[in-house]
């Protein structure tokens, strides 16, 4: 007796080889793997599962009327990819990224990444890059657990299903949470989920490493539980360390002309960055904590100076005076 894989591959090959729609009855008779003596209901259930699996592989079937019964054929436009032109550099890049991340347990989409690159196999043929990457560690804390949980959350985001989990906050208190997850992001080796906390009726960010026992709502799996706000972008929630907390102060900082090239990478998409005629850059950004922003300025310097508000300059100056005093000769 053949196994499910053999039957499903046979079905894919058969549908790919037939130019005209075929009935379920014909498929039952022609495709090796469906038991000959199988009753119709059992066959149809098996056929439905196989169609779903082919869809999960990227093979789309269309159904047409075939003299009063459903006729099935492969939707070639929806299933087959067109020619993908990639430069040598792009091919190498794809190979290198995949080699680094596909087997990294902290990357939630490793198996999907491997299959995606395999599907691009023709476009990537003869490309180098795979050997350029050495094993690394996308996450340094419980990578397998974070990667697996982030994968579950990303699926819940895509299918718009609620999730429940136990969450330990920074004070060590644990309680159950229910979240409508809008997005997932990765920052500094850690995964985070953003969504509506249903008990607090507000959008909040949760660290994946603090979650335990994440469960996706299993009721009506094909029906979404919620709609994310139309203007939601998870990038808006990737805050810098000084942006966490209640209240905000609008601040301006200047990057010197020598250091302005580093500005777009340091600001992480937060605030607005305006290049100045003399080559410097002016950054307008909201801060929840001026002391933490002052620390950020010191840590990421040189060439970053506060412009406004005056309290930011004073906070920075006061902190620096303490440093000098403490490290006196």
């Amino acid at each position: 007796m053949s196994d499910a894989t053999e039957r499903q591959v046979n079905l894919a090959l058969y549908l790919s080889s037939t130019r005209t729609p075929v009935s379920a009855e014909t498929i039952h008779a022609e495709v090796f793997g469906y038991p000959a003596g199988q009753d119709e209901d059992t066959f149809l259930r098996m056929f439905e599962r196989d169609k779903k699996q082919l869809r999960a592989c990227g093979l789309m079937l269309e159904v047409v009327d075939l003299e009063g019964v459903p006729g099935y054929r492969l939707d070639a436009d929806a299933s087959y990819a067109g020619e993908l032109e990639l430069s040598e550099s792009e091919r190498t890049t794809l190979r290198a990224v995949a080699a680094a991340l596909a087997s990294d347990p902290g990357f939630p989409f490793g198996s999907d990444l491997a299959i995606a690159v395999a599907k691009l196999g023709g476009a990537l043929r003869e490309a180098g890059g795979a050997a350029a990457s050495a094993p690394g560690a996308l996450t340094d804390e419980a990578p397998s657990a974070q990667g697996a949980t982030a994968a579950v959350l990303a699926e819940a985001v895509a299918s718009r299903k609620r999730v429940r989990f136990g969450y330990t906050n920074a004070s060590g208190e644990m309680r159950d949470r229910e979240l409508e997850p809008y997005g997932v992001y990765f920052q500094d080796g850690r995964w985070y989920a953003v969504g509506r906390d249903t008990s607090r009726e507000e959008t909040r960010t949760f660290a994946v490493r603090r979650m335990r026992g994440v469960e996706v709502n299993s009721r009506k799996p094909a029906a979404p539980d919620f709609e994310a706000p139309s203007d939601f972008s998870v990038a808006d929630h990737m805050l810098l360390p000084f942006q966490y907390g209640p209240g905000t102060v609008e601040c301006e900082l200047r990057f010197s002309a020598e250091e302005a090239w580093r500005a777009p990478r340091l600001v992480g998409g937060q605030g607005t960055l305006e290049m100045q005629p003399a080559g410097s850059a002016l950054w307008r950004v909201s801060a929840a904590s001026l002391p933490r922003l002052a620390r950020w300025i010191i840590e990421n310097g040189p060439g970053i100076t506060p412009v406004s508000p005056p309290e930011l300059r004073e906070t920075l100056a006061e902190g620096l005076r303490k440093v000098v005093a403490r490290h006196g000769a």
């Binding site: 990227g58 087959y80 990819a81 989409f109 999907d112 299959i115 995606a116 599907k119 691009l120 895509a158």
Partner: peptide
């Protein structure tokens, strides 16, 4: 070549 599924494109 078969098209990328949404999960593969996401990866």
């Amino acid at each position: 070549p078969v098209r990328l599924t949404p999960a593969e494109a996401r990866a």
